[in-house]
Amino acid sequence: MNLNLVSRIKALLTVIFSVSLLLIVGMGCEYSEETPEIEKRAQEINSVVMCPVCPGESIDQSQHPLAVQMRNIVVEELENGMNETQIKNYFVDAYGPSVLLEPPTSGINIWVWLVPPIVMVLVLGSVFTILKKTSRRGNIDDGITYSSDQDQDLINRVEFALEREGIVSVTKNPNSE
């Protein structure tokens, strides 16, 4: 009874400790609404348009003069009232489809998006079937439960180690049941 309370307090302490750690983490992630609307939209476009002369970098990332120029075009065209797709298409017309970091979602290239989920479903499906089969096989109730080394096992080992070192002699801890 008493011990139950103690272990609850311990659990509570762990949670409090972790939560406070996460609070610190959360504090780092506060602001969001500072960039003006148009710049935010521009950033979203910039980050998916590749800088044609700097392999592997988007125009958002690159400080190459061409990237700077393209960024300016994005802002200008947004101000002129073009939408995201129109601007992207504008760049595709100028530099070809490889200028977009996001692979196309239409035509035959849709397969780049489709293959990963299909493979995932197939593979995970078969794994779960295997696991389910084994669980049926493993359901022989022989009355043995295997303790996780999380709980009792851990305490036993700790005590065993203590005993070996001669710090305390524990034969059987009445509390540990």
């Binding site: 980050s47 998916v48 490889s98 996001e102």
Partner: peptide
């Protein structure tokens, strides 16, 4: 490697980047 596949099969170079 998809860009290579796409280049070989349709002769279109596309980029598969961060968003994907």
């Amino acid at each position: 490697i998809y860009p290579v596949i796409s280049k070989a099969s349709q002769d279109v170079m596309i980029t598969v980047g961060e968003p994907f």
